[in-house]
């Protein structure tokens, strides 16, 4: 990145401009980003450390943590495999309608989470298209784990693909062609050439995908059914505790999610610092 700028160079701003803009940036970020984060932890520890840890003894909180981990453990690998397949097809080949395909892959990212939940209600709900058939065959999707997983997969759909596509496009196909001409099978070329080239970007995408999968609220709220200890994920459990006047516990569970966010950021910064060139993700989302 940049070296320390020296004063009075024609390519930098006057000192007062630099100081002011830096301060403005810091105040802006502090107000909007850091303060909410601090507020979560302050509220969580309001009644002391004992009350904080007692919040995690509650079986419903544990069930919520378990469910959240399970949902992420199913949704993230699915989107990982998809991300690899999609980026392989899009980055290594030229075909018609590619930009439409990319737009469609991006679509879940800009669809409101509420709409994401609603579409699964319209599809699988008892009043929905497939609802009566599912009910007749005793298959539970909405208000059970499959519905929560589907909604989560939907909202985290583009995360891995979006990290891989620009990078693999930049890298072109020369390496793979060389490997193939040396007699490697297609799969081997992918495994030994492509994958190592993109592994850090892949990890980066998985991190973001995981953070969103564990934290999704709107879409999951619509399809969850709010059954205690069963279909409440951690973000939903935060809301429930909040509504039970149990603020310390609400913020305690929230602080766990905030910790997860901090870990994600730390891992992400580490990747950027260590493998910055290998990620080169321009439009980060």
């Amino acid at each position: 990145m940049s070296e320390a700028p020296k004063p009075h160079r024609p390519t930098t701003e006057a000192r007062w401009v630099r100081v002011t803009t830096t301060l403005v940036s810091l105040v802006f970020l502090g107000l909007f980003l850091v303060l909410p984060l601090i507020a979560v932890f302050v509220e969580a520890f309001r009644s002391g450390v004992g009350a904080y840890f007692a919040s995690f003894q509650d079986p419903d909180a544990l069930a919520a943590i378990r469910l959240t981990l399970m949902v992420a453990a199913i949704a993230v690998p699915l989107n990982l495999v998809f991300g690899i397949a999609a980026s392989w097809a899009i980055a290594k080949f030229h075909f018609k309608g590619k930009s439409l395909l990319i737009t469609l892959i991006d679509l879940p990212f800009s669809v409101s989470p509420v709409v994401a939940g609603l579409v699964f209600i319209l599809l699988f709900g008892a009043q929905g298209l497939l609802g009566p058939w599912l009910r007749a065959h005793d298959v539970e999707i909405i208000f059970a784990l499959p519905g929560i997983v589907l909604a989560t997969v939907f909202v985290t759909f583009p995360f891995v693909a979006r990290e891989l596509i620009p990078l693999m496009q930049d890298q072109g196909t020369a390496d793979e062609e060389a490997a193939l001409s040396l007699g490697a099978s297609g799969f081997k070329a992918f495994w030994t050439v492509t994958l190592p080239n993109v592994r850090w970007a892949l990890l980066y995408g998985v991190l973001l995908c995981n953070a969103r999968a564990m934290g999704e609220f709107g879409a999951v709220a619509v399809v969850s059914g709010h059954i205690r200890g069963e279909t409440n994920t951690m973000p939903l459990h935060v809301e429930i505790l909040y509504n039970e006047y149990n603020f310390v516990a609400a913020f305690a569970v929230a602080s766990l999610l905030a910790l997860l966010a901090l870990l994600t950021l730390a891992a992400k910064s580490f990747l950027e610092w260590r493998y910055g060139d290998a990620i080169a993700a321009r439009a980060a989302h």
Partner: peptide, 20 residues
């Protein structure tokens, strides 16, 4: 006994949509 709580209308909606 499994419990589900929420706004009355939203709970009725969930039962209509198939909450068992």
């Amino acid at each position: 006994i499994r419990m589900s709580h929420g706004g009355s209308g939203s709970q009725a909606r969930a039962v209509i949509d198939g909450l068992d």
